Amino acid sequence: MSSPNFIDYVKFNSRSGHGGAGCLHFHREKFIQKGGPDGGNGGRGGHVILRGNAQLWTLLHLKYRKHVIASNGEAGEAQNQTGADGQDEIIEVPLGTVAKDAETGEVRCEINEDGQEFILTRGGRGGKGNLFFATSTNQAPQHAQPGEPGIEEWIILELKLLADVGLVGFPNAGKSTLLSIVSAAKPKIADYPFTTLTPNLGVVAYRDGLSFVMADIPGIIEGAAEGKGLGIRFLRHIERNSLLLFLVPADAKDIKSEFEILLNELKKYNPELLDKKRMLAISKSDMLDEELMAEMKKELPADIPAVFISSITQQGITELKDTIWRLLHS
């Protein structure tokens, strides 16, 4: 997943179709001069529908589509013929897509399954023809309903990545390097902060042909929940992860303090994130000897599993995978 092609936010105008008008008509034949009413109903307007597609990973295909317009229903006809329904406009979206009302922020739906459909903007109902209004006391109604107008609204789509493991850490903590080592993903890697500007996904191969999905999220800094750095734009991707893997480099001034800052940012963004399983990996551990590692272990948080790893020397990578797999399935 290359950076320019990863789009996780789009805003567009959604317009459903108008319902068709009911028909005002009376039956006429050669030998029937004053037949009864036979005006048919109008067809409904087309819906705007979201449909989940497991083959999509981004909202890129909607980036330049600012207007989504469904067609109108057709008017009813004589001989009680119902007008054709307007054609629905179906928008395919990746799993993990959330639709919101752009004005109120109300969440309209969340698409999590392949083939799942949700009527986002409902088409107008077709009007009733004059046959519908015929009664024993009004056998020749002189009116039919107009079609119901469609709805026009602005919609926001946000994508939350569906991954088993989310990498959480400060910029330059080694998240992208780790993902490139344990999977076939090729995120941008460089020796400066905020190298990763968009999330990256990688499938990590485990034992006996098993695997799990890992997501590299752009680095968090203190104050991210208030919008500092890359802000909360990418924090929403962490909401979908089963396990949070915190990465803190071995050369950090205070590993426990950095871990607590990261944890606090997640808490301020969404307290429910603290209910997720989590573990700690000390990256760049190839610079440590056994004695120093033993001393550092004493200072680490006692309530979560911790592993010392090095993406360069592969130190601790097998132990890391084993711990992740155990936590995912416990």
Score class of each variant (00 low, 15 high):
Ile189His: 05
Thr196Pro: 09
Trp325Leu: 12
Ile304Lys: 13
Ala250Val: 11
Ala294Met: 10
Gly96Ile: 02
Asp286Val: 05
Leu273Tyr: 01
Gly223Ile: 11
Gln55Ala: 11
Phe31Met: 11
Asp303Leu: 06
Gly174Ala: 07
Leu266Ile: 05
Ile261Tyr: 06
Arg326Pro: 02
Ile324Ala: 13
His18Ala: 09
Phe133Gln: 03
Gly39Lys: 03
Ser180Tyr: 01
Gly83Ile: 02
Ile49Thr: 00
Asn72Lys: 15
Leu300Arg: 06
Gly52Pro: 01
Ser283Cys: 01
Met214His: 03
Phe308Ile: 07
Gly43Trp: 08
Ser283Arg: 02
His25Glu: 06
Glu158Trp: 03
Leu262His: 09
Pro271Val: 01
Ala70His: 15
Glu295Pro: 09
Leu263Val: 09
Ala294Glu: 14
Leu56Ala: 13
Lys284Cys: 03
Ala215Pro: 10
Arg326Ala: 12
Gly174Phe: 02
His27Glu: 15
Asp191Trp: 13
Pro305Glu: 15
Asp286Lys: 08
Ala54Thr: 08
Asn5Leu: 12
Gly17Gln: 14
His61Asn: 11
Arg28Val: 05
Pro94Trp: 07
Thr82Tyr: 09
Pro37Cys: 04
Gly209Val: 09
Ile189Val: 12
Asn270Thr: 04
Thr58Glu: 14
Asn264Val: 13
Pro4Ala: 05
Ile181Pro: 00
Leu245Asp: 07
Ile189Cys: 10
Gly147Tyr: 12
Lys228Asp: 04
Arg236Met: 06
Glu222Ala: 09
Val203Cys: 03
Gly105Asn: 14
Ser211Val: 14
Gly124Phe: 04
Gly45Glu: 00
Ile232Thr: 05
Leu157Gln: 12
Asn112Lys: 14
Ser71Glu: 13
Pro37Asn: 10
Ala215Asp: 09
Ser285Gly: 10
Thr198Ile: 02
Ala205Ser: 07
Leu300Lys: 11
Lys276Val: 06
His25Arg: 10
Leu162Cys: 08
His27Ser: 12
Arg51His: 09
Asp275Ile: 02
Gly124Lys: 04
Ser16Gly: 06
Arg233Phe: 03
Gly42Cys: 03
Met214Glu: 03
